[in-house]
C-alpha cells in the first residue's frame, strides 16, 4: 500500500507540469472568454440604446439578459475543456510509452522495484483518475470566479445570475463531465475507469507481443465490449425483454466489475510474465 502511494505520488509529479500548464491555459482562455463575451454584449447594448435610442426595456426584450450560459456556450469556454480532455486521452497512452522511449528507459527501474508489478498498473490508472478529477475539481472552482468577473463587468439590470449547478446542468455537453447527481458521477466515471483499464490492458498486450499484441489488444477490447453489452443483447434479441430495468442495471454493473477484474488480472499477468523491455 505504501509503495502504491509512493508510486502514485511519483507518477503524479511526472505530470504535474503538463497538468498545471493545461489548467493555466483553461483559466486564461476562459477569463478572456468572460471579458470578450461581456464586452460584446455591452457594446451591443450601448449601440442599440445610445446610437439607435432603443429603450432599455425594449433592448432587454429583444436581446435578453446576459448570463453565464452565453460564456459557457462559447468556444473560449469549451475549447480549453476539449484540450484538457484531449490531454487526458493522450496521456492514457503516453503514461506507458514514455517509460519505454528515449535512452533512459525508465521501465527497467519500474519493473525492478521490489513491489508487485500490478502496483505500477494501479499507480498509473490512479494518476489518470487524479488528473481527470483534478480538472473537474478546478473547473468547478473556476466557474464561480468567472461568474464574479461577469458580475463586475455587466450591470445588474442586464444580467441574469445563475449558480454553478444551473450552468453545468443547462448544457448537455457539460452534464457529461459534471453529472447532476453523485450516482451519475460514479456511473459515468466508473465507465471511464473501465475503458481506461481495457485500454491499459491493450497497451500491455502491445508491449508484450508487439504487432501480434496490437491484434490481441483489439480483440481484448472487442471482447470487453461484447461482455459488457451481453445482458443488453440477450435481453433484446434472445430473452424477449426478460429482465426488469433494475435487474439489467445490476447485471450491467456486475459485467462492468467482471471486465474490470479481467483487465486487472490480465494486466497483472502480462506485467509479471510477458512484458518485455
Amino acid at each position: 500500500m505504501k509503495k502504491y502511494l509512493q508510486l502514485v505520488n511519483f507518477e503524479f509529479n511526472r505530470i504535474v507540469k503538463l497538468f498545471t500548464v493545461l489548467l493555466g491555459i483553461t483559466f486564461v482562455a476562459q477569463m478572456i472568454g468572460v471579458v470578450v463575451q461581456s464586452r460584446s454584449y455591452l457594446n451591443l447594448a450601448n449601440e442599440k440604446m445610445y446610437k439607435e435610442m432603443m429603450p432599455q426595456a425594449e433592448f432587454l426584450e429583444s436581446f435578453g439578459q446576459m448570463s453565464f450560459l452565453q460564456i459557457a456556450k462559447s468556444s473560449w469556454f469549451f475549447g480549453p475543456i476539449a484540450l484538457c480532455v484531449a490531454g487526458v486521452a493522450f496521456y492514457i497512452f503516453f503514461i506507458w510509452y514514455r517509460d519505454w522511449i528515449g535512452k533512459n528507459t525508465f521501465i527497467y527501474r519500474l519493473l525492478m522495484l521490489p513491489t508487485s508489478r500490478l502496483n505500477i498498473f494501479f499507480a498509473k490508472i490512479t494518476t489518470i483518475l487524479l488528473m481527470t478529477f483534478g480538472f473537474v475539481a478546478v473547473q468547478l472552482i473556476m466557474i464561480p470566479i468567472e461568474i464574479m468577473v461577469l458580475k463586475a463587468m455587466v450591470p445588474n439590470e442586464f444580467r441574469l445570475d445563475l449558480g454553478v449547478m444551473e450552468v453545468v446542468t443547462s448544457i448537455p455537453e457539460l452534464t457529461l463531465i459534471f453529472p447532476s447527481s453523485i450516482m451519475e458521477f460514479i456511473f459515468n466515471y466508473g465507465l471511464g475507469l473501465l475503458a481506461v483499464s481495457v485500454l491499459f490492458t491493450g497497451i500491455l498486450f502491445e508491449r508484450s507481443y508487439k504487432w501480434k499484441g496490437i491484434l490481441a489488444g483489439l480483440l481484448y477490447g472487442a471482447l470487453a465490449v461484447v461482455v459488457l453489452l451481453l445482458p443488453l443483447l440477450l435481453h433484446e434479441f434472445v430473452l424477449n425483454n426478460f429482465f426488469y430495468p433494475i435487474e439489467l442495471l445490476v447485471l450491467e454493473i456486475i459485467m462492468g466489475l467482471l471486465v474490470l477484474s479481467a483487465s486487472i488480472w490480465v494486466s497483472g499477468f502480462l506485467l509479471k510474465k510477458k512484458v518485455t523491455v
Partner: peptide, 18 residues
C-alpha cells in the same frame, strides 16, 4: 518481487528520469 532486494541489474544506460 522480493528478489529485487537481493539482486540488481545495472543496464548499459542509466534508467532514471533525465
Amino acid at each position: 518481487k522480493h528478489s529485487f532486494e537481493k539482486i540488481t541489474f545495472i543496464p548499459d544506460s542509466l534508467t532514471m528520469l533525465p
